[in-house]
């Protein structure tokens, strides 16, 4: 734990993703005497999630993914409580309880707990037969399961999945995408734009199955011995076999531990344009929060590395005295670049 004067404020950040990390860095710059503690489920220090497809290009050591080494945290006196599960937040007492019953007092709290892969209910029973790709550990486990030139079946296919698909094709794997409404998540793609985007995917080498998606899947099964490890059976009687099946249906905000805290929650934590929740000492940033948009007259999510980092920075500035509003990027459209790639303006690429 960082040693600071007793009077120093204790800023607690839940989450060591890009929002949480960026916030901690900005908090340290702007409040040098404070105590800063990051609480995170992760066992690793902050790493570049968007680089994870690199596990297929030979990078397997987690140290290659770290944004900063351990000294960075020591030098800046940022306490990193890894493998720590926040179970509950008591906003009145300003106390966080971890699931091992440790209580941590905070002066300000930034919730940057992101989201976890969403899995439609009808597929939930097949979870054990699917591989996630949300963390370094997931990525390595999946990479070990996918043989050289192996076949990956992606269900849904959001931007995270499409990034991975591109790398898999580049590294001589076969990719089948069972496409659906989530295919370009978090982008909303109109009927008219979709065919061109799907064609681009096919040009990249991805085999796209349109129209099946979740509703069309009857079951996912273990492959027979000596054959591919997995089979996806469709309701129309067809099936495909592959080595791994991966669900990519966007993210669901991680808010469970905030349920009793008294702050307003819709799907994510509802925050003002200044990223403050309904409790004045609690802020939120990143995939976990829905920000009030004056223009759209609704709370909405903003995803992608660049957006989320900016949110972390903004929340920290506002915690330390500023009162700036979130300014969303004007351009949220997907583009097809000259070299035939699908590009998002707020997405960071490997």
């Amino acid at each position: 734990m960082a040693e600071t004067a007793k009077s120093a404020r204790h800023h607690v950040v839940v989450g060591s993703g890009v929002a949480g990390f960026q916030a901690a860095e900005t908090l340290r710059e702007r409040d040098p005497d404070s105590r800063i503690t990051i609480l995170t489920l992760s066992r690793l220090l902050f790493y570049k999630r968007y680089d994870l497809p690199k596990v297929f290009r030979g990078s397997r050591d987690w140290r290659e993914f770290l944004v900063h080494p351990a000294e960075f945290y020591r030098d800046r006196r940022i306490g990193m409580r890894r493998a720590s599960h926040v179970a509950n937040v008591d906003s009145r007492r300003k106390v966080i309880t971890l699931d091992h019953k440790e209580e941590i007092r905070f002066d300000t709290l930034l919730v940057a707990s992101g989201g976890r892969a969403y899995l439609p209910e009808e597929l939930a029973e097949f979870r054990p037969l699917m591989h996630n790709f949300g963390s370094y550990e997931d990525a390595i486990t999946m990479a070990k399961a996918l043989p050289e030139r192996g076949h990956a079946i992606m269900l849904g296919g959001d931007m995270i999945g499409l990034d991975l698909a591109r790398t898999l094709i580049d590294t001589q794997h076969r990719v089948t995408l069972v496409a659906g409404p989530h295919t370009f998540w978090p982008h909303e793609v109109g009927e008219s734009e979709r065919p061109a985007l799907v064609a681009t995917l096919e040009k990249m080498g991805i085999e796209v199955i349109e129209g099946a998606d979740t509703g069309g899947i009857a079951s996912i099964e273990q492959g027979a011995r000596g054959f591919s490890a997995r089979r996806v059976l469709f309701k129309d009687g067809t099936e495909i076999a592959g080595d791994v099946v991966m669900p990519f249906f966007g993210l669901m905000p991680s808010v469970e531990f905030m349920l009793g805290s008294g702050v307003d929650i819709e799907r994510g934590l509802l925050v003002s344009p200044g990223l403050r929740t309904t409790d004045e000492s609690i802020y939120a940033a990143g995939d976990v929060c829905q920000i009030w948009s004056d223009a759209e007259r609704r709370y909405r999510f903003y995803y992608g590395w660049k957006n989320v980092r900016a949110m972390g920075d903004l929340a920290a500035r506002n915690i330390t005295g500023s009162s700036d509003p979130w300014v969303p990027a004007q351009d949220e459209k997907l583009h097809i670049s000259g070299d035939g790639r699908i590009q998002s303006p707020f997405w960071e690429y490997e």
């Binding site: 351990a70 409580r81 720590s84 091992h100 019953k101 440790e102």
Partner: peptide, 25 residues
């Protein structure tokens, strides 16, 4: 990983694991 009693901050070893070490709860 767990504790049977309520702990004050720092009462669990996870609070003392340095950023270079790897936790196994």
């Amino acid at each position: 990983r767990g504790s049977i009693v309520q702990l004050p901050e720092g009462g669990h070893i996870s609070a003392h694991i340095g950023p270079g070490q790897l936790p196994y709860p």
